[in-house]
C-alpha cells in the first residue's frame, strides 16, 4: 500500500469529520468518514497493513480530539480510538471474505460493524477511566446513563454505515492510488 496516499486521504477524512460531516447530522446523530477509509483499506490490504492503518488513523483521531480535565484543563487522551479502530478492523477482516467487495451495501454493512465494535471498546475504556478523580465519562455530562450513550453511539455507527454506502464509489475510483496488491489471497474470485 502507498502510505503517503493513505495519510493524505486520512487527513482529509479527519478534517471532514471535524468540520463538515455535521451537514449530514440528524439531531444528535452524525456520521464519520474516517471509519469508511479504514474499512476500505481493511478490505483490500493484507492483515498487517490494515491493522497498522487502523492504528495510525486512531492515533490521528485521538490527537485531534481534545478533552478537559476538571472542566478547565485541556488534554488529549491518546489510545482509546487507536484500540477501538484496531478492534473494529479485527472484526472487519474476517467478514471481508463473506462480502462482495465492490458492493456499496456490503461496504456500508462492514463500516457499521467496524464503528459498532470501536464504540463498544471506547465506551469500555471511558468507563474504566471514570474511576479517576476529575475525569467524567462522556455519558455523565450528556446522556446520564451508559446505555443511552451506547444507543446514541449505535445510531452514529449506523449513520456512518449509510454514509459509507455513498463513499464506496469515490473510494473505489481512488483505489488504484492506494497501490494494493493485484491479487488478494482471501477472495480472488470476488474482486
Amino acid at each position: 500500500m502507498r502510505w503517503g496516499f493513505f495519510l493524505l486521504l486520512l487527513i482529509v477524512a479527519v478534517v471532514l469529520d471535524a468540520s463538515f460531516t455535521q451537514v449530514f447530522a440528524i439531531g444528535r446523530v452524525h456520521p464519520s468518514v474516517t471509519p469508511a477509509l479504514v474499512v476500505f483499506v481493511a478490505m483490500y490490504a493484507n492483515r498487517s497493513t490494515a491493522m497498522w492503518a487502523a492504528l495510525v488513523a486512531g492515533l490521528l483521531v485521538d490527537l485531534t480530539t481534545p478533552a478537559l480535565f476538571d472542566g478547565t484543563r485541556p488534554y488529549h487522551l491518546i489510545g482509546p480510538t487507536i484500540l477501538g479502530f484496531v478492534f473494529g478492523t479485527a472484526i472487519a477482516i474476517p467478514l471481508r471474505t463473506m462480502v462482495v467487495r465492490k458492493n456499496p451495501l456490503a461496504f456500508g454493512f462492514l463500516v457499521a460493524f467496524f464503528a459498532l465494535g470501536a464504540m463498544v471498546l471506547i465506551t469500555a475504556i471511558s468507563s474504566a477511566r471514570g474511576w479517576y478523580a476529575g475525569t467524567v465519562p462522556p455519558w455523565m455530562s450528556e446522556e446520564g446513563r451508559v446505555l443511552s450513550w451506547m444507543w446514541l453511539g449505535s445510531l452514529d455507527a449506523l449513520a456512518t454505515g449509510c454514509l459509507a454506502v455513498l463513499l464506496a464509489w469515490p473510494l473505489q475510483r481512488l483505489g488504484s492510488g492506494f497501490g494494493f496488491a493485484a491479487s488478494s489471497p482471501w477472495s480472488s474470485r470476488r474482486g
Binding site: G58, F69, R73, Y75, I78, G79, I82, L83, G134
Partner: peptide, 16 residues
Amino acid sequence: ALVLSLLPTRWLVGWT
C-alpha cells in the same frame, strides 16, 4: 496505546 489510554488524567495534562 493501552497504557496511554489507562493513564491517570492528571499525568496527561500538558504534554499531550
